[in-house]
């Protein structure tokens, strides 16, 4: 599925505390979480994000707490895919498990700037920077992790597996 969107660009080690601070963790309502998303690093994000925009981060995106509230807040903000040099492992699992595509492209993130327009095929992992003309390829998901992503998340995957058992 090809997605086109404008880039919100963040740096290295974006932790889950800045994605959604603990003071908002009393709720698990996706829209309420989205209303505070990125607040401690970018107050303009929640106000100005448009459905279809894309977050691009540096190394170790989503480090820190295991709070799944973080990818949920991003997804509920209307972000269809997050691209980063690398992801922290719990955030990576959580993203796959809730059906938020995450693409890892290493140093190629340096060729993407805030406001660039990207076209992303989450199935093939191909990313086109429409603004600059660059094309990147994300590392493919390994083995059955791809099946979890295709099912739209871990709950659907497990339900399908149980139905077919």
């Amino acid at each position: 599925m090809a997605l086109t969107g404008k880039v919100w660009r963040y740096g290295d080690n974006i932790d889950t505390d800045v994605i959604i601070p603990a003071r908002y963790l009393m709720s698990f309502d996706p829209q309420e979480l989205a209303s505070h998303c990125m607040v401690d690093i970018d107050k303009s994000f929640a106000k100005n994000v448009q459905k279809g925009d894309i977050i691009v981060g540096g190394k170790n995106f989503g480090c820190g707490s295991s709070r799944e509230h973080a990818p949920v807040a991003i997804k509920a903000s209307g972000i269809p895919v997050v691209i980063a040099a690398s992801f922290a492992r719990i955030f990576y699992r959580n993203g796959i498990n809730i059906g938020l595509p995450l693409l890892e492209i290493g140093k190629d993130v340096e060729k993407i700037s805030a406001g660039d327009k990207l076209s992303v095929d989450t199935a093939t992992g191909e990313i086109k920077n429409i603004t600059t003309g660059d094309v990147f390829h994300a590392h493919p998901l390994p083995g059955f992790v791809e099946d979890i992503a295709k099912a739209g998340g871990l709950i659907n995957y497990i339900k399908e597996k149980r139905k077919n058992a």
Binding site: E68, I90, R93, I98, V145, I148, L154, I155
Partner: peptide
Amino acid sequence: TGVGTTDLAVALATGEAWFK
């Protein structure tokens, strides 16, 4: 190791988790 909410839900139901 630490996991998120969805991994936890599946673990509560199945007693299993996937790992690389």
